[in-house]
């Protein structure tokens, strides 16, 4: 089993190794005619080039603000809507649910241009608000959390109601804590998706000072003059770190809450 797992890990993680290894190779070695994982001559030159060619710290901060903003916004709107759809006796809640879930099937090319024009009219191009607000809601999040909330034992909600708690208190004292695993899981996904997103920031952030990492990194790709593979991979290696750390921190938390949830049942 270990053998099989190790093999799977090796296959799956290989592209990331290749990225790192390209990041520490000098240009001639990048174009070495044979496959070679480790560099013959290790260099950090690509990292230096990546840092000087684009304002990478600025890109980093922008990516972080946008990813964090979108994650929080999506988590809040999803929790509220999923709570209403799953546990509150409101009329037509299945219709509401379908209303949200159907958005998952809408190709993003449809919403891109109208939203751009709107953001432009509101003078929000090149602002964090313009980058964040149009994506503050996600059908995917509502879908996932509604499924999770529905599997919550009804007795828990009942008990809270009988204690005289109102729906707001019930949500934050009972429903959210009981579903922190699911909420953490979708939040990670929101964060990672936003962190890696390309087309929307490409349209909205045209000033170099407002660009996010995936857009800013495109300066290394040039099909006319030649792609700078080394610096591109160096920048990419630096860019995955926050997402990986976010996952590392969150996954420990998820694991713990799974284990405690398992013990309780």
């Amino acid at each position: 089993m270990h053998g099989l797992l190790c093999l799977a890990c090796a296959l799956i993680v290989f592209p990331l190794f290749w990225m790192l290894s390209t990041a520490v190779k000098p240009p001639q070695e990048i174009f070495a005619g044979t496959f070679r994982l480790s560099p013959e001559r290790f260099t950090l030159e690509n990292f230096r080039a990546a840092m000087t060619a684009v304002p990478i710290v600025r890109l980093f901060v922008n990516s972080l603000v946008v990813a964090f903003g979108v994650t929080v916004a999506q988590a809040v709107t999803s929790i509220l809507a999923a709570y209403a759809c799953a546990l509150m006796p409101i009329p037509g809640r299945n219709v509401w649910f379908a209303f949200f879930v159907a958005t998952m099937m809408i190709p993003f090319q449809v919403t891109m241009i109208p939203n751009y024009l709107l953001v432009s009219k509101l003078e929000l191009l090149n602002t964090y608000t313009g980058l964040i607000v149009p994506q503050a809601v996600t059908g995917f999040g509502i879908f996932m959390l509604r499924q999770a909330f529905r599997s919550l034992p009804r007795s828990l909600v009942e008990a809270s109601v009988l204690d005289g708690a109102n729906s707001w208190q019930t949500l934050w004292r009972v429903v959210v804590p009981a579903n922190r695993t699911a909420i953490a899981a979708v939040s990670i996904l929101f964060f990672i998706n936003t962190w890696n997103q390309y087309l929307w920031p490409l349209l909205v952030a045209t000033d170099r000072s407002m660009k996010t990492l995936p857009v800013g990194m495109q300066e290394f790709v040039n099909l006319e003059g030649g792609t700078m593979w080394g610096p591109l991979m160096a920048a990419a290696s630096m860019a995955i770190l926050p997402a990986l750390v976010a996952y590392l921190l969150a996954q420990r938390y998820i694991l713990e809450s799974f284990v405690t949830a398992g013990l309780k049942e």
Partner: peptide, 21 residues
């Protein structure tokens, strides 16, 4: 000065959208 990714085709796409706005 604003760099547009995707060479001339990419620049054209951004330009079309900017003209629409």
């Amino acid at each position: 000065e604003k760099f547009q990714p995707g060479v001339y085709t990419g620049l054209m796409q951004q330009l079309q959208v900017a003209l629409a706005a």
